[in-house]
């Protein structure tokens, strides 16, 4: 390792030594990242896995093993049935609609000759905005009396709109809906805000996907006899957007699983009327952090990780399968 060493064996210098030195520096360069990955991502998963079989609480010195009791509760108690219902309602509503709207908006915007950037900017605004602030703004808009939504609906009362729309007629008679307080609407309002916030993101990804579709393909499709816009969409656009779609669906569903801000903003306690918006993240927060029921919180965490893992594995499988695209 001294200067004389290197002078004495130049061959060693050129072959073995740099490789070894490179190996050592490589490990030094990756060590911090590795350590943090283990500490912050892997260890917590392991800890959650272990704690999910205990009745541990913060502040207690010990804990008891309770076997699968926590998981058993998750699968049998009605609170958790509500949790799964709310979570899957949210994910299965927000994902397809925000993906569909994102695709629709992207196709419309892409076919325009002017004002494209303006629409793109506007639709992307919610993605940037602090969700909790915007949730509060939505809360005002949906306010039963002073909210603009009900005020607008009330304007339809007594006009021809009422006759065409029985739902409105009913509410004109009985009073406008309590959007956030009504069990029938609560989760759908939360879904709506989720879609409002997320579809611009999908739109931008689809717009990027559309620019990669070769223009000559559309010409070829035209020459080949694809006469309608729908046929060209089926023959060229949709297959070309396949990889984008797989990705957009994955990321949308993972984001939907993580919904929390909206629900905490609307319902600081209780997650909506009759726990109708009791999603998993909220349950983790409420059980694990607020009520210090770490065992059950960990079990929900493990379930949550299981769902996310499943979605990602499906995505990777789809991507692998279509590796020969393009």
């Amino acid at each position: 390792m001294t200067a004389t060493d290197t002078i004495l064996s130049p061959q060693q210098l050129s072959a073995a030594d740099p490789a070894r030195r490179q190996r050592r520096t490589a490990w030094m360069l990756t060590a911090p990242a590795l350590a943090l990955m283990v500490l912050i991502l892997l260890a917590p998963v392991a800890i959650a896995a272990v704690l999910s079989f205990t009745n541990y609480s913060l502040g207690n010195f010990g804990f008891d093993w309770v076997g699968v009791e926590n998981y058993d509760k998750l699968l049998t108690r009605s609170t958790y049935a509500k949790m799964f219902t709310a979570t899957f309602t949210y994910v299965l509503t927000v994902t397809p609609i925000s993906v569909g709207l994102g695709l629709g908006a992207a196709l419309l915007i892409n076919s325009l000759t002017r004002l494209r950037d303006l629409y793109k900017t506007i639709y992307f605004l919610p993605v940037m905005a602090t969700l909790i602030a915007m949730s509060i703004a939505w809360e005002f808009m949906l306010h039963p009396t002073i909210g603009v939504v009900n005020q607008t609906l009330a304007k339809g009362c007594g006009t021809w709109v009422e006759t065409l729309w029985p739902w409105l007629a009913m509410h004109c008679a009985e009073g406008m809906p309590l959007w956030l307080g009504n069990r029938r609407y609560a989760i759908w309002v939360v879904c709506f805000v989720g879609i409002w916030q997320g579809f611009g993101f999908n739109m931008v990804l689809y717009l990027a996907g559309l620019t990669s579709v070769h223009r000559e393909l559309y010409h070829a499709a035209e020459i080949d006899g694809a006469r309608s816009g729908w046929e060209r969409f089926r023959l060229v656009t949709w297959p070309a957007l396949g990889p984008t779609t797989v990705f957009v669906v994955t990321i949308s569903s993972i984001r939907s699983f993580q919904v929390f801000d909206t629900i905490e903003a609307f319902y600081p306690i209780g997650a909506g009327p009759g726990k109708s918006a009791y999603v998993m993240m909220f349950a983790i927060f409420e059980k694990g952090v607020e009520q210090n029921l770490i065992g059950i919180g960990s079990a929900i965490t493990m379930m949550f990780l299981g769902f996310v893992l499943m979605i990602t594995l499906i995505q990777r499988w789809l991507v692998e399968r279509k590796v020969h695209y393009g």
Partner: peptide, 15 residues
């Protein structure tokens, strides 16, 4: 690790 959203392991991290 790309599979693990940090929010998902919030509880053990908090502990």
């Amino acid at each position: 690790c790309l599979l693990i959203p940090v929010h998902a392991v919030a509880l053990p991290l908090y502990i």
